[in-house]
């Protein structure tokens, strides 16, 4: 079973087409947590993505009107994704990324669901304006050396050149 990419996650979240409140929570979760077929392959939300979706639905309401608008946009996004044959958003051409980003922005401007595509991933906002960040579970947590390395490298260079010049000066004056 393949895992959904960020775009497909967002698509899955919005492929409701009906008022969230009309469904029981079990029915709602069943719709969102179902298997989606894209490019002949089956995709499903990962367990951590399900946690994020559950939390989003607990905090926010999606009206029928918004759902209708979103569904039309989602159809567009699905066609774009199917055209790529995979859901690996990071490997899409820039033109495709821009196209999907534009669709997400249309949803944001025309409904109460606020979402944008950023470098860090799909950013969705709750109705109170706070962020819902969707990204990967495991982060880079190594020793923070980037700044230290640059400063250390420059320091070595400065000390070395300075020492060299001093030695030269001393020898010249002898």
């Amino acid at each position: 079973m393949k895992k959904l990419s960020l775009i497909a996650l967002f698509v899955g979240l919005l492929v409701l087409g009906t008022n969230v409140k009309a469904m029981t929570e079990a029915e709602l979760k069943g719709k969102l947590f179902q298997t989606f077929e894209i490019g002949g392959k089956d995709y499903t939300l990962s367990d951590d993505q399900k946690v994020i979706v559950e939390r989003y639905l607990e905090k926010n309401e999606i009206s029928e009107a918004d759902a209708d608008t979103i569904w039309a946009k989602v159809q567009k996004a699905l066609n774009v994704i199917k055209g790529q044959g995979n859901t690996n958003f990071t490997k899409y051409p820039q033109s495709v990324k821009n196209e999907l980003k534009a669709i997400v922005e249309e949803i944001s401007s025309e409904t109460k669901v606020k979402a944008t595509l950023t470098k860090e991933g799909l950013e969705v906002k709750n109705s109170d304006g706070t962020k819902v960040i969707i990204d990967t579970p495991v982060k880079r947590t190594g020793y923070e050396t980037s700044k230290t390395a640059i400063i250390a490298g420059l320091s070595i260079l400065i000390v070395a050149v300075g020492t060299c010049l001093v030695i030269k000066q001393v020898k010249t004056s002898e």
């Binding site: 951590d48 946690v51 994020i52 579970p137």
Partner: peptide, 30 residues
Amino acid sequence: NKKILRLGVGHYTGSYFPGENGSILYAAHN
């Protein structure tokens, strides 16, 4: 995110909170 991990321990948003009877995933630099 990177900004948070400079401040202390980061809690992955796709995991549960303490007291919710689920997995809690914390990360920090070494």
